[in-house]
Write a protein that binds this DNA or RNA. Structure first.
Lengths: 104, 104
DNA sequence: GCTAAATACATCGGCAATCTATGTATCAAG
DNA sequence: CTTGATACATAGATTGCCGATGTATTTAGC
């Protein structure tokens, strides 16, 4: 049981709170989920690249103390997709819960 | 967004209501989820075989009107796993919902 | 009687999401 | 001066699911 397929939505949601770089996004997801969701680097970075070339986020490279940080922010299109994906999540949730016989 | 990884749990849950053959299980999942969850044959049958050689379900072949039906039923071990998986589903659910900022 | 759709099982190939492992590099703590 | 955290990235493997295909029977429509 992993609930695969939610990562892109989670990334967009985190970026709704403001721009962040990859590593920070992963930490945020972990923190907000109280340690339950812990996506690895080999999952995170490819997902960010994919979201970027879909135009849902865009990035800017910054050099801070000689260390390169790639900072991502939500695009207007990304915001629209987030709203749609949240709705779809709830729809799937209701469906699975209905089969499992849960209240919601 | 698909909430992938829930199929084995859904199958076990359906079999909790009593023995059923593969095709019927798929129909039940579809019906209970009001058409939202519609697993294909190329997904369903391999999943059933996997659950069987994990010992979570067992099957019996029946010939009804010259047509072979493989009827599956939950094992005791399958029942235990179902309880655990339902709990795990709720755990993952709370985690994703927390990130998405939902009530539950 | 013929045909199409539903029932019923099964397997193969492929795509997508994730993880493990590996690589590079800087910074902070002990 | 070494370990752990930060920060990015890619390659290979595994898993979950789907599409396509194959076989065969039953039922409904015409």
């Amino acid at each position: 049981m992993n609930l695969k397929g939610t990562l892109p939505t989670l990334i967009l949601q985190v970026l709704l709170s403001g721009p962040a770089h990859g590593y920070r996004i992963a930490q945020d997801i972990k923190a907000r989920s109280k340690g339950v969701l812990e996506f690895k680097e080999g999952t995170l970075y490819p997902a960010l690249h994919e979201l970027e070339n879909q135009g849902l986020i865009r990035s800017e490279e910054r050099t801070i103390n000689g260390r390169v940080r790639r900072e991502y922010r939500l695009t207007d299109e990304g915001h629209k997709v987030l709203v749609a994906e949240r709705k779809e999540f709830r729809r799937m949730l209701r469906a699975v819960s209905a089969v499992l016989g849960e209240s919601s």
